[in-house]
Amino acid sequence: MKPAILTDTTKCTGCSECAIACQRVNRLERDIPRRWDFGDGLSAENWCSVVDAADNTFVRKQCRHCLDPACVDACPVGAMHKTAAGPVLCDTSKCIGCRYCMMACPFGIPRYEWSNVVPYVRKCVLCYDRIKAGGQPACTEACPAKATIFGDRDELLAEAHRRIRRNPGKYLDRVWGESEVGGTSVLYISGIDLSFLTYGEHFGKEPLPQTTTLAMESVPFAFLGMGAAMGGLYWIIERRNRLQAEKAAGEAKGQREPEK
């Protein structure tokens, strides 16, 4: 089973029970507005927030737990990792604090503890312990309107398409997270355009880690190629210089002899 969450924004009443449950279960602290906030309610202490979007629609924001996550590819020490169970987690004991994951995330999800002297990257963990024990995340459990539900990704996708088919006037014909950047575990269906959740307006279907594949795979070849080219050039130029010097010496010898 691929654990996933489907959020139906047409059902959300904006009650924030999900965010409250998230804070309680993950033992997060009360947070105040800070200078470095993104403005979407997420922070190092708020892993789930409800965005008051246009047209009286509430959109729950959280980590998308991509199937092929950019943050995992970016992390130089492998602290950010995708678990076999599905959630993308950060191993803080490995983290060096470079914040490349925050730069790489196309959804702008990971947040930093800017006020701490020993800061870590923090974000939604899809309640890893709970789903590993066979349960469901705190947010989906808390939702009174069943606007956000937990389940197998394939089943939720089928459910999402079923809802759209049954109510074409209510929903836009699109499941956000189905295929963007290779697909995400957190899916949305909505009556409004949700591209404000992402950095770019138009996401491709290609997983972001593929963008670096060519460059990274050519690294050994570039290294050996450059080394070989430099070595070869050195050999050629050295040989040419040596031959020229010998020739010059020979000519000098040849010129000198008749003088004697």
Partner: peptide, 19 residues
């Protein structure tokens, strides 16, 4: 953020990362 962990690069590897 955690400069004292910079040596982690030598033991924790992620060769797919440009960094």
């Amino acid at each position: 953020g955690l400069p004292w962990n910079i040596w982690h690069l030598t033991i924790y590897w992620n060769p797919r990362s440009p960094l």
